[in-house]
């Protein structure tokens, strides 16, 4: 079949230009802080800012808590649905897709109405309570991705045989879950975890409206008041996102070659 590759090449080049030019533009802009010369001054200023360090480590902590809650919630559920309640699968899938239907700003609005200081469960009264609410909010935001990832992982292994083998050796449910199922879908859990991390680390709406000192609101604040630092922060955020996606690829590839039966 004679086929010109001119069109496809043109599409790729235009696409690459659209996606690379803003990155180059941001990088160039971030290095313009010192007059006349390119320097990493903006990065030095940003990385040395104590509020950067505080908000970034706050968001990292929050991401880790979110991942822990998310994994403990999603893996047993997906496992149990696969093993015992396959009829429930469409319902569970529907629920996990709801965060894509309901905009994040609406969910957090609901939190503020439901968990405020006059409510039956005044989570927003204390800082720890608000942190917890924020983590729960992030678990819902990450739910579609975490569930997809874990469910795909579970489908690739023989859950029933593994469970029966473990049961016949006298394992309890905790042993089955943590020492049989978890290790077998480790790469799927890690994919979900890195994606969750990428979502949580720069999230703005939830953190700003719950008034917590996370990285997203810090970014916004710097953006409103500074010229060159925001560009440096954008590059840093891009590198973090890139690292998360790269790690997913690495672990995904490991799964592809490792468990080929």
């Amino acid at each position: 079949m004679k086929k010109s590759t001119f069109g496809p090449w043109l599409a790729m080049i235009l696409g690459a230009a659209y996606f690379l030019i803003p990155l180059i533009g941001t990088l160039e802009f971030s290095m313009r802080m010192k007059r006349g010369v390119y320097s990493f001054e903006a990065y030095k200023v940003v990385l040395g800012d104590p509020r950067f360090q505080e908000s970034f480590s706050y968001s990292v902590m929050l991401a880790l808590v979110t991942i822990a809650i998310g994994v403990l919630l999603v893996v047993p559920t997906a496992y149990w649905v696969q093993l015992r309640l396959p009829k429930l699968r469409p319902v569970v899938e529907f629920v996990t897709l709801l965060p894509l239907v309901i905009p994040a700003i609406v969910i957090v609005f609901g939190y503020l109405r439901m968990y405020n200081s006059q409510s039956w469960l005044p989570l927003t009264d204390t800082r720890r309570g608000t942190d917890l609410l924020l983590a729960f909010g992030y678990v819902t935001l990450a739910l579609p991705y975490m569930y997809r990832s874990v469910d795909t992982g579970l489908r690739a292994i023989d859950v029933r045989t593994l469970t029966e083998a473990a049961e016949s050796l006298g394992a309890g449910w905790a042993t089955i879950l943590f020492r049989v199922i978890f290790p077998n879908i480790r790469s799927a859990i890690l994919s979900g975890a890195f994606l969750t991390f990428a979502i949580v680390i720069g999230e703005f709406t939830f953190a700003a409206l719950l008034d917590r000192p996370a990285f997203g609101p810090y970014l916004q604040l710097v953006g409103a008041n500074r010229a060159y630092e925001p560009a440096a922060l954008a590059i840093i955020a891009f590198v973090v996102t890139w690292a998360c996606m790269g790690l997913i690829q690495v672990f995904g590839a490991a799964r592809g070659t490792g468990s080929k039966s």
């Binding site: 996606f19 803003p22 533009g25 941001t26 802009f29 970014l219 954008a234 955020a237 996606m245």
Partner: peptide, 22 residues
């Protein structure tokens, strides 16, 4: 791979990138 990254590169940093470009 790039699409995976770019589709998650939204929010505040994306706004900064476009301000620095356009």
């Amino acid at each position: 791979t790039f699409s995976g990254v770019a589709s998650n590169f939204a929010g505040v940093p994306l706004a900064f990138a476009f301000l620095a470009t356009l």
